[in-house]
Structure formats: C-alpha cells, structure tokens
Design a protein around this nucleic acid. Structure first.
Length: 579
RNA sequence: GGUCCCGUGGUGAAGUCUGGAGUUCACGCUGGCCUGUCAAGCCAGAGGUCGCGGGUUCAAAUCCCGUCGGGACCGCCA
C-alpha cells in the first residue's frame, strides 16, 4: 500500500510543486469525457480535488490512495467555497484500497436523513462533516475539562462499574452474578458514594469523567448511559465547588467558541421558580412570570379562588387565533392545569377574554397594570396551588418563546438554595430533592430539628446547587453531610430506619466513624454540555453510538435474548411476557 | 402509564383533509455523450407489498380499527 504523506484538508498553496500521496474516501467524482475527471477525496481534515485522466471505475466512497503533484488551479477555476479550493493534485495516479457499494444514504448529501437509518449505519454517518465536527468537539471539550481539573490539582480516580444496588433514585440496570447466583450487581447511576469515600480516604480533590447508567425513559437530552464530569472536594463550601466547575465549563466553552463566557450568575431556587417557573430556567429570553395573587384576592370568580395566580404576558401576542389558543389551553391541561385563562388587550385598554365577565373593573385594571400590558398584548393566567401554577406557566413560557438551540448565546446559570425536601409522600415522609446526603442550609438547621410539620420541612433549604445552560440542567451538586448525627436525623425524617440505613449505606456511615472531612462536590453531563456548545438539539448527535428513544440500538439490535446456557449459568429463568 | 407528530423506489419530500390506473419533484444508482468541473452538464434507463394486519367501499397510499417502528413531550430521571 502506498504510504500517506499528507492529509487532504491540510494541503495549501505552500505545497505547490510537491509530489504527495493522500488517502481517503471518494466524496464526489465528476467525469468530463474519457480523458479528464475530477475526484474529490475526503479524509478527517477535509476535501481536496484530484485530477485524473480516467475515473470511470471509481465510485463514491471507494477508499483510495492518490499520488500526484500539488499545483495551482487555473485562476478562473478556483473554488472559494473549499479551503483547498485554490490548489489541486494534478496528473494523479490512483490506487484503489477498497471498493464500496453505494451507501444507503449520501454522506455528502444536503438533506437530513432519517435518524434510524443513520444510527443503523453509524459507521457511515460518522463520515459526515457534522458527526466529525461533533465528536472532535467532544474530544476537545473532554481534553479541556481534564486540563482544567488537572490544573486545579484534582486527582483522576476510577470507581467500579459493578456495584451494589441501592433502591433510591433512578431505576438501576442490574447484572446477574455468576459466582453468587440469585444476586445482582448494579451499574452505577453515579459514583456518588465512592467519591465520598475517597474524601474520607484523604484524596482531597477527586474527579472522573464517568459513565453513568439509569434505566429511565429516554429523551432528547437523556440516554440510558451518559457521561459526567464527576468531582468532590474536601474542606470547602459550595462556593468553592462552583468556582472550580465554573472554571472547567468556561475552559470547555472557550475551546469551542473561542470566547470565555462571562462569570456565571447565581439565582436562588425560589426566585427561579417564581420568575421562570422552572428550576432550570432558560434565561436567554424574558417572558417572566408575574404574580397576580393579590390582584384577585377578593375575587368572585370561582376559578380564581386559588392559593396562587400568576400570569405571563406576550407583547404584541394578541393576534393569535382562537384555534391556537384552544391548543395552548389543551396543552396547559395536559401539564396539569385546570384551565388556561387568556386576556387580550384592545386599543383603548378594553380586554377580550372568555372570562372577562367574571372579573371586576378593579381586577382588570389591576391585572393590566401589574402585568404592564398594553394594546396588542395578551396575558395567560393560571390559578392553582403555587407548585402547579409555576410548573404550567414555566412550560407555557418555553412553548411560547424558547429560541432554537443555536441562538441567543450561552446563558450559564447557577441555581442555589434548593429546598432540602421536594414534597411529602403518601405516608407523610418528606422526599429528598437531591439525595439524602445533602447538607441542610446552616440557617435552617434549627427549623429542621424543631419541627416535624411537613409545611415547615418543605421550607428547609439545602446546600444543593444546579448548573443550568440555556434551560438544560447540566448537573447538580451539594455540600454533603459529614456528621453522623445530622445524617441520622435526615434518615429519620425520610422514614429510613436504623436497620435500613445500616443495610443500604452502612459502609458510608461506618466510614464516617473514622474522621470524615467536610466535603462537597458536583457532577455535570458532558453529553449535554457538548450538544449545547456545538448547537445540537439532541445528545444523540454528540454520541458515537446512541440508542433510540425506546432504548434499542438499530446497529447491533441490542437488547437481544441470550442463550439458555448463559441463563443456566446465571441461575436465571425468563418468565413469559405478562398479558 | 399518557398526549401528539411521522412512516410513499436507495435518500429526502409532495400526494392523504376532499377515495378513482403507483402519479410527481429533487438527490442517488446504471449505461451513453462530454477536456476545467466542483450541487458539473446533456441523453436514456432501472428501481415501489405506499411499515404491517384487518375493516368500510364498485374502488383505499388516501377513510375506520388494530399493530409495529421512529421522533417530541408529560409522568419518570434521589
């Protein structure tokens, strides 16, 4: 085989006169009769035009080694759309290294191809400039993150993939044990407990680019397996953790955009919920939620006799048709609202609304002034309990105005002061908002120990924080509990008894007996970060071999059945499907 | 568990609402012509179980029911 001397996309006018050999795939062939043809050869660096005197037996995606002399193109034939467009490889001889059948889709095509077909033939899809760019960007981001963490004196440690199942959190993927039939390993949802053990072990600053697995339904931003930058630090508070992570993601953003992002603002969770109706607000645009509860405090309108009323205003949004309004109302209902009230503002301040007749003059003027609504605007109102109101309006806000992924810049945001408990379950036990090792806010410790009233407990803040980028949750972290007494108090509140906590987390509790440093950490999703940085709506576009939304792989056909022999060895029996 | 959208030669779309011959467009593919193209051009050609099954009808890509596959979202994701 002829040895490559150069890459296609790196040839330039500096190489004129050199005899070179390039290797790659045939991107395009243009024949001009028997004695002149152009072959565009593609490798990972780009495309170069090769001039050959006979190309009839060369087809798309053949693998070639082309040898010839670099020369300037006749000026009138230069191609300014191509980085190598001013030169070409002349009088080229071609060695065919591999023949190729016509691919199932065009590698250099201009139309989008059905994603299932792309994934089924991912080895071809990876040749496209889009996937080359995305995966190379991903590698550059990984390198930048590693560089940043190394510079900040973190040590990269590996934690096990086969671990014990803990029933909290997401559904586990499990692996049957051959040597211990009937017992199972779980694949890690995150290295959480191990990194805390590393802190007890005096590693001080740990990080890992870790694969995590969660058996939950897939989405545009969720795959079964995903990659996180996972880290933990000793003797620090949350502020220092956020500084380290801010540095790492800024480095990552800079290698892609060429610019360092501004310092990342912080917003308390309660403010995020009240202003944006989300704990991962997309702050690239306004359309903030406005509180109207006091405006309707004495209302006669039954639908507005609710703990919370909020609205959002779309400026000049009043020309929306009845049909679309009905669709928005249906959506709001599907998100859990009882209904969606809309109010259009006319030229002299009069309003049009299906429920206008139920509102008093004072309420209407209060509504318009509070929302600063003027002619041509439309307001959408939801009345319900607070949690539901902000949830529905938060989704409506995104529905109405969310920009495409590649518009509006990069708006990083820290959401801080999350509540310690998200809600109360049917037995009256509070549910942790983050995980049960999250340290309560120092100022709320008293509230925590004094009260066991659910409404009080939901007020307790935690030292947990999320990093958000353009409305995507990149990751979360917290200051951890390193004191056994507080940890036991939390377990008690969560309804986890002594025996249960010992069984599930005993190894961590035991470790804490022997001198646990105060510690805090974070983890963020690299798939999501990469997708947003390269402007993709979907993390599958930045994963070499992703799965479909139903969790299958059209390339390998996973998941598949396994041999009876394998089942026997593992002591497993497969039940017939439930009917 | 739920809501919505999509499925038509190798690829992408139109046709479906309003039933009437597998019709159309672009790319690709095969053959021919063509000595400066680069979305090459010109000529000719091949290529289809309209995802699958059932129903309605004289007649179904089109309407109805079911099912499979893909996608977006709600729930879920400590």
């Amino acid at each position: 085989m002829t040895k490559r001397t150069d890459y296609c996309g790196r040839l330039s006018s500096d190489d004129i006169g050199r005899t070179v050999t390039v290797c790659g795939w045939v991107s395009k062939r243009r024949e001009h009769g028997e004695f002149l043809a152009f072959v565009d050869l593609r490798d990972r660096t780009g495309i170069v035009q090769c001039v050959v005197d006979h190309a009839h037996d060369i087809r798309s995606e053949y693998v070639l080694a082309v040898t010839g002399t670099v020369r300037e193109r006749p000026p009138e034939t230069a191609n300014n759309d191509l980085p190598t467009g001013s030169i070409e490889i002349g009088e080229a001889t071609v060695e065919i290294l591999s023949h190729a059948e016509p691919p199932p889709f065009q590698i250099s095509g201009r139309v989008d191809v059905d994603e299932t077909i792309r994934i089924r033939h991912r080895y071809l899809d990876l040749r496209t400039s889009r996937m080359q760019r995305n995966l190379r960007s991903r590698a550059a981001i990984n390198a930048a993150i590693r560089r940043s963490m190394d510079d900040q004196e973190f040590v990269e440690l590996e934690t096990p993939m086969l671990i014990a199942s803990t029933p909290e959190g997401a559904r586990d993927f499990v692996v049957p044990s051959r040597l211990s039939p009937g017992n199972f390993y779980a694949l890690p949802q995150s290295p959480q407990l191990f990194k805390q053990l590393c802190m007890v072990g005096g590693m001080d600053r740990y990080y890992q680019i870790a694969r995590c697995m969660r058996d939950e339904d897939l989405r545009a931003d969720r795959q079964f397996e995903f990659t996180q930058l996972d880290m933990e630090m000793s003797f620090v508070d949350g502020r220092e953790v956020r500084a380290v992570i801010s540095e790492a993601v800024s480095e990552a953003a800079e290698v892609i955009t060429g610019e360092r992002p501004d310092s990342i603002p912080e917003i308390p969770w309660s403010e995020a919920m009240n202003r944006y109706g989300s704990d991962k607000p997309d702050i690239r645009f306004g359309l903030e939620l406005v509180d109207l509860t006091s405006v309707f405090s004495d209302t006669d309108f039954n639908a507005f006799k609710a703990p919370t009323i909020k609205g959002i205003k779309v400026e000049a949004g009043g020309d929306i048709g009845r049909n679309q309004l009905d669709q928005l109302t249906d959506k709001a209902k599907s998100w859990g609202a009882k209904g969606l009230v809309w109010v259009k503002v006319g030229s002299s301040g009069e309003v049009t609304s299906p429920v206008a007749k139920f509102m008093s003059e004072a309420e209407i003027s209060g509504l318009l002034s509070t929302m600063e609504a003027t002619e041509g605007d439309i307001c959408y109102l939801v009345a319900d309990e607070w949690r539901k109101v902000v949830h529905v309006l938060g989704l409506l806000r995104l529905e109405l105005a969310r920009p495409p992924v590649n518009e509006g810049g990069l708006c990083f945001l820290w959401v801080v002061d999350f509540p310690l408990f998200e809600d109360v379950d049917d037995d009256g036990n509070p549910l942790p908002a983050h995980h049960p090792f999250t340290m309560p806010h120092a100022d709320d410790l008293e509230l925590l120990s004094k009260s066991s009233v659910a409404s009080d407990l939901l007020e307790v803040r935690s030292q947990a924080y999320d990093l958000v980028l353009n409305g995507w949750e990149l990751g979360s972290g917290s200051v951890r509990i390193h004191r056994r007494d507080i940890q036991q108090q939390i377990f008690h509140l969560l309804g986890i008894g002594e025996e249960e906590s010992q069984q599930k987390f005993g190894f961590l509790m035991d470790a804490f007996r022997y001198g646990a440093p105060p510690h805090a950490g974070f983890a963020f999703g690299i798939d999501r970060l990469v997708a947003l940085l390269v402007g993709e709506e979907n993390i599958r576009e930045v994963i070499a071999f992703p799965k479909t939304q139903s969790g299958t792989d059209p390339l390998t056909n996973a998941p598949t059945s396994i041999d009876q022999t394998q089942l026997d060895e593992l002591g497993l029996r497969v039940l017939p499907p439930a009917t």
